[in-house]
């Protein structure tokens, strides 16, 4: 049914796409760490080649009742429910920054438990609902 040219073309096409997919998948695998926008506290703990002078980003949840505001300095704990990192930061935080919400901090690690942030970004989740429904959920 198909003529020879069409067959040839589809063969070349499938071979080409297969090779390309393998190439891209393997290069992403190599680049793994660079594709990550931030590290979780557990990943920081398990990381062996940690460079303290390098600017990195860490992310997770702001632990409940951990925010301490002191003059212009703000101190809070980032957690992924397994490990925790203490973060200090000077400056204004985004509106959505709150306890129990996601956060990404950019800055330098002092050691594996202590982080000095230069910039704070709020990470919000994929849930959208009106305020009334949130109240109902909380009351339950």
């Amino acid at each position: 049914m198909l003529n020879k040219k069409t067959k040839n073309k589809s063969f070349i096409f499938f071979l080409f796409s297969l090779l390309l997919i393998i190439a891209v998948a393997s290069s992403l695998k190599v680049l793994d760490d660079n594709v990550l926008y931030f590290f979780s506290p557990t990943e920081i703990k398990e990381k062996s080649n940690l460079n303290l002078n390098q600017k990195i980003r860490i992310g997770g949840m702001v632990k409940n009742q951990s925010i301490i505001v002191n003059n212009n300095e703000i101190k809070f704990i980032v957690t992924d429910f397994k490990n925790e990192i203490i973060v200090t930061y000077r400056g204004t935080v985004p509106n959505l920054f709150a306890e129990g919400k996601g956060v990404v901090a950019e800055g330098k690690l002092q050691d594996k438990k202590y982080f000095v942030a230069k910039r704070i970004l709020a990470k919000h989740d994929e849930n959208y609902m009106p305020p009334k429904n949130k109240k109902k959920l909380n009351d339950k």
Binding site: K123, D125, E126, Y128
Partner: peptide, 21 residues
Amino acid sequence: WSTLHQPASVNIFGETSVHKS
């Protein structure tokens, strides 16, 4: 990967996390 962008809210096959309204 871990990204700043939130995961998809509307899924055809899974749960949709956007309120009806």
